[in-house]
Design a protein around this nucleic acid. Structure first.
Lengths: 112, 112
DNA sequence: TTTAGTACTTTGTATTGCATAGTACAAAAT
DNA sequence: ATTTTGTACTATGCAATACAAAGTACTAAA
């Protein structure tokens, strides 16, 4: 029984919501996203983030453009599409429902 | 982009915590657990629950005993082991941390 | 020119929720 | 007595995604 694995499993499905949320606040590129997640105590690694961004792009929730960097290779800046904004709202709803359901499940005192 | 799939993905890793929590309140068998989850708006199916219960038993977080039923086949009643109680506390902590992290990620207003 | 740092891509693995098929037991129906 | 129905559990294959690791590409510094 590995608590770190439980953490990773709990993260599944939630990162999508978090990442769309970060991008909804303005154009960012991958390292920005990793930094923001880190700030929020949510550690995500490249092997997760890049494929996830690609999936979101393929699902047409994101669009991107290449922008030259001042001090290194070019960067891919992402924005939400119209569809992306819509799905973000749905994911927010879904997450809130899940939080309520877990709360209810774990604090219920009578089985009835 | 399928919101139902997002729901299922979000559930991954969380069910463990919910199920241990339900069992912590007293001996129950599988259908009891499904009912309680349903009451809490968390739908889980047999194909998920049974293997999960088996995993938890194999990890020594649960023990069980067969009890004859009044009106059907015998039932497997589960209880938490000492280890199970300990892990439940850790999962509770882990979940709360995750909820905080998501909240922080999705409501942060300045990138800094 | 080579090295180091940054950014992105690809692929394979492990894990788990779901769908489905099947077995087993007991009570009800035939 | 036998068959059907309802309940309970087992097993297996699939889909999806977080993570680890290997690799490519670009730019600035050494």
């Amino acid at each position: 029984m590995n608590i770190e694995n439980s953490k990773a499993q709990m993260k599944k499905g939630i990162l999508e919501y978090c990442i769309l949320s970060i991008i909804s606040r303005g154009e960012v590129y991958a390292s920005d996203i990793i930094d923001e997640l880190k700030n929020s105590k949510m550690i995500v690694v490249e092997g997760t983030l890049y494929p996830l961004l690609t999936r979101l792009k393929n699902d047409e929730l994101l669009s991107y453009q290449w922008i030259e960097s001042k001090s290194g290779p070019p960067r891919k800046y992402f924005q939400l599409t119209k569809e992306g904004k819509k799905i973000l709202k749905e994911l927010e709803e879904t997450w809130n429902e899940l939080v309520q359901a877990v709360k209810y499940t774990t604090t219920q005192s009578n089985k009835k």
